[in-house]
Design a protein around this nucleic acid. Structure first.
Lengths: 171, 171
DNA sequence: ACTAAGTCTCTCAGTGCTAAGACAAAATGT
DNA sequence: ACATTTTGTCTTAGCACTGAGAGACTTAGT
């Protein structure tokens, strides 16, 4: 963008946007419905997951490993957005129940893989389809077209917000 | 992803990826971007609120009382979606810091009002505008039109999900 | 009146998580 | 070769909640 037209645009906004806080009102309103929608859907998701005697975070890790195969704990952490201590805790619990197991990493003696056991696979095979259906039902108030629109908007929003918080990784 | 290439990709580690129907795939994908977007925006919100030495829940209660005036604790609970024990806890903390105070209810001796003190008002007066701006920035990757679309879709989604979980109040 | 049921707040034990730091191993620089 | 920095996981302490229940009070039914 040429400097001249940018300056023109800035001038224009400064002049023609007297109600500066309309932007904020709109944003706050959107943030309210966003967090409420997420909370409601999350509540349905959690309720379904609880039927399997798992917490959402446990389910998240188990499902991740089920669909992606064995992963290093650090990779798991990046995917599920939990602190490093949290990953250890969750993996401990799943391992105690025999649903996953830790494996040594041949190239790096600090690292550990987490891998779903046969028991874990059996559980997911039984539980995941029901969960998928529960989520489809939870979002059914939007028709496919609307879901596609929402998906695109939220993707954009999520990326923008993630960028805005900088590369601030979860520790 | 075409079924053929997915099958080829799976060959590596014997990961079982049964085919789910399109409705469920779409719903799961939407749920992922929804929760990620909410998490990112929430993270920005929390970071801003933390500058005032408040947790998000404390800020939520304080802001609610600031804008709506004194409310019974039960009313507060309904608005901020926290358990009854949580409301007591949060109100305790805000009251300890002198930002709000409890008041007797003339008509019902069980009930208590929570009301923002002068100190609490002063804090909000100083902090809220900055927070509003922070949220506007956090959502700025969507233009006003897109924000309006997202608002409408999320409102619909949230209402549908809330209805689906029945009148299951927070205890 | 009296009882039963409902409502409002608070208590308390328990939980899933975070943050900070410790430790070991690996990568990088010198 | 060695020192430094970085990386990957685990440990520990602590926190912001939740859930179940109790006590105090009100309301409704008889």
């Amino acid at each position: 963008m040429p400097a001249a037209s940018r300056a023109a645009k800035e001038h224009k906004e400064a002049v023609e946007t007297p109600r500066y806080d309309e932007r904020e009102t709109r944003a706050l309103g959107l943030w309210v419905v966003l967090s409420r929608a997420a909370a409601s859907v999350s509540s349905l998701s959690t309720a379904d997951i609880a039927l399997s005697e798992l917490t959402p975070a446990e389910f998240g890790v188990l499902e991740l490993l089920y669909h992606k195969g064995p992963l290093l704990l650090g990779e798991v952490q990046k995917k599920v957005l939990v602190s490093s201590g949290g990953v250890t805790y969750i993996v401990d619990r799943l391992a105690d129940r025999g649903l996953i197991e830790r494996r040594l990493c041949p190239n790096d003696r600090r690292a550990r893989y987490a891998a779903v056991t046969r028991k874990g696979k059996a559980l997911m095979k039984q539980v995941f389809p029901r969960h998928a259906k529960a989520m489809a039902d939870a979002l059914a108030s939007l028709n496919p077209e609307e879901q596609a629109q929402a998906h695109e908007l939220l993707r954009k929003l999520g990326l923008g917000a993630a960028r805005a918080m900088g590369p601030k990784a979860v520790k």
